[in-house]
């Protein structure tokens, strides 16, 4: 009887019984090691393709796993000493700018001009641009009494008193370097160890500086 005329039922019952199906395949499993016709060719091709693929895959793996590191690879750019120096200063200044914005700008303003009659300007101020020790000392201990900045007198009401809040040497170095180079100021930077030595020099001092004390410490800065 041709297949076309058989019903589903008939096709199904003309199929293999399950016990025969199991036995047949078990038998096939057992004879798999005996070389038979058509058996040899396929595995050879398989072994060849398999080998090629493993080869390609390992090359791909070696190229893409990035040494099993957590972070993606970054192009390592060899910086010249000059560039390194520029990058260091840039980072120092930007860190100083943040400290300034957080701690100083509320009085001295972000433009460094202060408030007339209340808070002295930092931009173009001889107190800032001459010796870096001046503002470092002021930041460390504070300042009271009257001072004259850029020809204007500033009063006693608001004393700088950063000392109340802990600030470390590197932060001071950063913020001092920033104010000495911002808003048209063009003085050289100050380093952490310099700050440390200034801190050590005035370690005994308990009260704030006065303007006169500062001027007497750095006479050449105020000579003009």
């Amino acid at each position: 009887m041709s297949i076309e005329k058989m019903s589903s039922e008939e096709i199904r019952s003309s199929g293999m019984k399950d016990d025969k199906l199991v036995d047949e395949h078990v038998r096939l499993n057992e004879i798999k090691h005996e070389p038979t016709k058509g058996f040899l060719q396929a595995p050879l091709i398989f072994v060849f393709v398999f080998g090629c693929l493993i080869f390609v895959c390992s090359i791909q793996l070696a190229h893409t796993t990035n040494d099993f590191a957590l972070h993606p690879p970054e192009e390592i750019i060899e910086l010249t000493p000059d560039e390194k120096e520029a990058l260091r200063i840039e980072r120092k200044i930007s860190s100083g700018e943040k400290i300034f914005a957080a701690r100083c700008a509320s009085c001295h303003q972000t433009n460094g001009l202060g408030i007339v009659g209340q808070y002295p300007p930092l931009a173009g101020s001889e107190w800032v641009t001459s010796d870096p020790g001046i503002i470092t000392n002021i930041i460390l201990k504070g300042l009271k009494g009257e001072i004259v900045v850029k020809g204007e007198t500033y009063g006693t009401t608001a004393a700088v008193n950063m000392a109340a809040v802990a600030i470390n040497d590197s932060e001071i170095a950063n913020v001092v370097s920033y104010v000495r180079q911002a808003w048209g100021n063009n003085a050289e930077e100050i380093f952490e160890d310099e700050v440390a030595s200034i801190r050590a020099d005035s370690a005994e001092k308990q009260d704030q500086w006065t303007g006169d004390q500062i001027i007497s410490m750095y006479p050449e800065s105020f000579a003009k």
């Binding site: 199904r12 199929g15 293999m16 199906l21 047949e24 395949h25 096939l28 499993n29 798999k32 058996f39």
Partner: peptide, 12 residues
């Protein structure tokens, strides 16, 4: 294999 009444080809 059940319906076609022949074992799987290249069963190994």
């Amino acid at each position: 294999p059940s319906v076609l009444n022949r074992p799987i080809d290249k069963y190994y």
